[in-house]
Amino acid sequence: MTAPLIKLNHIERSYPLGKQQFTYVLRDINLEIEEGDFVSVMGPSGAGKSTLLHLLGMHDFGWTGEFFLDETPVHRLKPKERTTLRNEQVGFVFQNYNLLDDLTVYENLDIPLSYRRYSKSERTALVADTLDRFSIVGKKDLYPRQLSGGQQQLVSIARAVIAKPKLILADEPTGNLHSGQAEEIMQLFKKLNTEGTTIIQVTHSETNAAHGNRVIQLRDGWIIK
């Protein structure tokens, strides 16, 4: 039996409120996610969904407990090692796309590769492949403000997968899109998942969650299902 892609043991995340007082955002999280899963994290506002996602994306280091990613003990890694691991394994998709305003579509796709020290020729080839794969070749010289919301999210997903991560984390990826566009994005996630990428998305939408194979419900920082 192979080890899970993600394993969380007794993870807790709190913020100080005052002297000796804390507010807990995640409580005793124990979770395993297998490679190839398409997981939807659901729950009301303030339940800790985004916090969990950023924890998994190694953007946040202020938690306690054990976190294994592909058998690597993240909790024992130094910040720089965590960044390296994140760059190798994780792609991120945001609700509001978070494309860089002053860069073209092409340059936005190139950015993650440049941070992963790919060579110039490798980057050119990968960006060209990705533009083709997502059918956005015609838009490569446009700036984000010249695209519709759906197109921007498409670029954002393309950017998340360009470095071939094992895991895609998506924070309400269709939150700013109308239903037609949302359905297209979910189909795209489904396709990526079918091709082997593990996907964890935070969503409020039952319809979106239905595209996945597993739902995790959070409430007040606890996993309730």
Partner: peptide, 16 residues
Amino acid sequence: TREIGIRMALGAQTGD
């Protein structure tokens, strides 16, 4: 700030 956050989320390290 937002741009830097995005870059870091996309893999930028301290040196970058």
